[in-house]
């Protein structure tokens, strides 16, 4: 019998027993990792985006080192691939894809949406990117450059969208509430 045919619960129990027995990880570390995986959701990334919109120093940190910026918001990043943050500006719009598989910044965005892993999204994001985001109702202003970022190796990428007009004077909590998963992938743009 190979690993793929094994009963998953028994396999998990056996692997956990070995990891603990050999001192590779402690039960506390496993519990902590399960908790951080469960708490990962787009709300974490949205908190980062909202803070970047209101705090120029934090914005600079986020663009320089996404991992440190996430940790500054108490998002556990230890042992995870480095997080890169892609800044949308008046001139540039970023769109993230992983054409080879489904690399995704899970610590800050949670599990990827089902379509992110689909062959259609992965193929069209590089060949038909403007047609693809148009299906979300996203049309870029004339002259804006589209930057497709194919996440092929050791980094994980999230988009820092532009703060929408009409949000002047809003609190960080109000701002975080309008930032959606798709805004941080680049298929949509935050709006109010």
């Amino acid at each position: 019998m190979n690993v793929l045919e094994a009963d998953s619960e028994k396999l998990l129990e056996a692997v956990l027993g070995l990891l603990k027995g050999k001192g590779v990880v402690t039960p506390e570390e496993i519990t902590a990792r399960i908790a951080s995986t469960d708490s990962a959701s787009p709300a974490q990334g949205a908190r980062m985006v909202a803070r970047a919109w209101t705090d120029p120093e934090y914005r600079a940190l986020m663009l320089r080192d996404g991992t440190v910026a996430a940790e500054a918001m108490d998002i556990p990043m230890r042992g995870l691939p480095p997080l890169g943050v892609l800044e949308n500006t008046d001139e540039v719009h970023n769109l993230v894809v992983c054409t080879l598989c489904s690399c995704y910044p899970r610590a800050v965005l949670g599990y990827p949406p089902f379509w992110f892993k689909s062959a259609a999204y992965r193929a069209r994001a590089v060949r038909d990117p403007r047609g693809l985001i148009a299906e979300w109702g996203t049309t870029l202003p004339e002259g804006m450059q589209l930057r497709v970022v194919d996440s092929t190796a050791d980094y994980r990428w999230m988009v820092l969208p532009r703060r929408p007009h009409g949000t002047e004077g809003w609190s960080v909590e109000q701002l975080a509430a309008i930032v959606r998963e798709g805004d941080m992938i680049g298929v949509t743009i935050p709006s109010v």
């Binding site: 590089v126 403007r130 589209l146 497709v148 980094y155």
Partner: peptide
Amino acid sequence: DETSAGAGDVIVVELF
């Protein structure tokens, strides 16, 4: 199935 990428659009990729 022509590409919908416009003039000036780029793709950025991690390569070893």
